[in-house]
Nucleic acid binder design. Sequence first.
DNA 1: CGACTACTTGATGAATTTCAAGCCATGTGG
DNA 2: CCACATGGCTTGAAATTCATCAAGTAGTCG
Lengths: 262, 262
Amino acid sequence: MPYSQISVEPPCRPLSPVALRRTVGAERSVSAFPAKEILPEAQTFASERRTVVAGADLVSEFDACSSLFIVIDGWFALKRILEDGRQQILDFVLPGGVIGDPSGRTRVMSYSVTALTDSAVAVIPQSRLPELFRKSPATAMALMQSAHDALSHAYDSLTDVGRRSAREAVASFLLRMDRRIRNAVGARADGSVEFPLTQENVGDALGLTAVHICRTLRALSKEGVVTACRKGLDVADPERLADIAGAEPDWDEEDAPRYAVA
Amino acid sequence: MPYSQISVEPPCRPLSPVALRRTVGAERSVSAFPAKEILPEAQTFASERRTVVAGADLVSEFDACSSLFIVIDGWFALKRILEDGRQQILDFVLPGGVIGDPSGRTRVMSYSVTALTDSAVAVIPQSRLPELFRKSPATAMALMQSAHDALSHAYDSLTDVGRRSAREAVASFLLRMDRRIRNAVGARADGSVEFPLTQENVGDALGLTAVHICRTLRALSKEGVVTACRKGLDVADPERLADIAGAEPDWDEEDAPRYAVA
DNA sequence: CGACTACTTGATGAATTTCAAGCCATGTGG
DNA sequence: CCACATGGCTTGAAATTCATCAAGTAGTCG
């Protein structure tokens, strides 16, 4: 049963039929064509391989950039920084992911690309894109799909940030990341996945403060739903996490919904 | 001087050099290749023309969709609806814009596409995409650029929703929309542009309530910066609007920063 | 004229930020 | 091997932004 019927009351607006179906936890946003499969093909067109140490920028906002990058190893964050220091992470890029504009326009970057871990990328000059499109339509198609996946991630984030509470947003975010990480690099022996993000990173992705991420994460882990720190991400109760992400008004645990003192 | 140096104090985190430059009001996100130019070319591959009345869905979330649409006339909103009725508008599509997945995967839609005005679209079956790509590389390129523009819009919105206050977000949003509308359909005789969005639409795009949009809009119009209602959008003071969007700590008007009584 | 939709305004309260402090692990140089 | 710095995490209390609830106005359309 892909989308079970759930009936809830509409506190804000009348519900359209579609609103009654599940919006979180479904497999809609998963790439049917894992980005990592384009690696071997596309690397044929790479001009060089570049390594980036954790914390360094591969490209900075306002730089002109005439390359496309394919992540071989490591994690990146695309982020925008406001004048007063606030920052918004637009997306994370995992191994196999693509960075840059595959439509081939050399343009000023509207975000910086920061390595979260020591990383390596293949560099494809945009000048070789026409050739790539001619010689390997499959790769071209993969690039377009990867661009469309990026759009899906952005829409997912926008929904989390705009219309979900902190608790819901964190749950939804961890669920999405868990899926993406499994797709990109697979799970570890104990079932958990690598997760090199700090609480500040998560906050910057969700438009929340690191302090509030901490409290929310603490609550979720105390309920035995999920644990997430730089050691790794471990979704103990996927069903319940999806429930929370969807919007879960009532509780079957003993804890109160507020952040109780230990 | 494309990006003037501005010095402000860092209330949250130390500033990187890039953070000192302007992030709002720059022309970065404007398509160098206005989407409306792809219309004549692409329509050659259309199988039909479809009209949609205001309020109706062109496609609904969870529908399978095997077409690409090019908007001939009218406005659309891409939106996601949560189980309890909350909704998030992901993007608006103006005349000349493209709706659907140009990578050609027939997939379940992850959002609905609602007409905000009486509208008309050209329908291109995804089955004809391979042919289109072969016969008209220019159109294919335009489709990809339009996809990339959509990503830019999503990233802009994400930054507004995640890291800007309501006041800043509304200012930034109106600035962006003004640019997009001028590009897509041009300005009216008096310098204003058409703007068929309700305050609820704006709220759903920015993750705020219609009530709060009302107050914010009211404040901005009382300051003589901008007026926006369904009659039209009129940016009276673009510079100041950009300042507000960027983050503007102090005031040169007599009004207090709170919503003063009339 | 009544119904409807979009907009307006005020009062109250809740979710989240901000400020402040402290903890724990890890690394590093004397 | 200790002293000390650093980065990431944790917790509390106060302040603020924004949502919610409630009511009312103006314009439009039948």
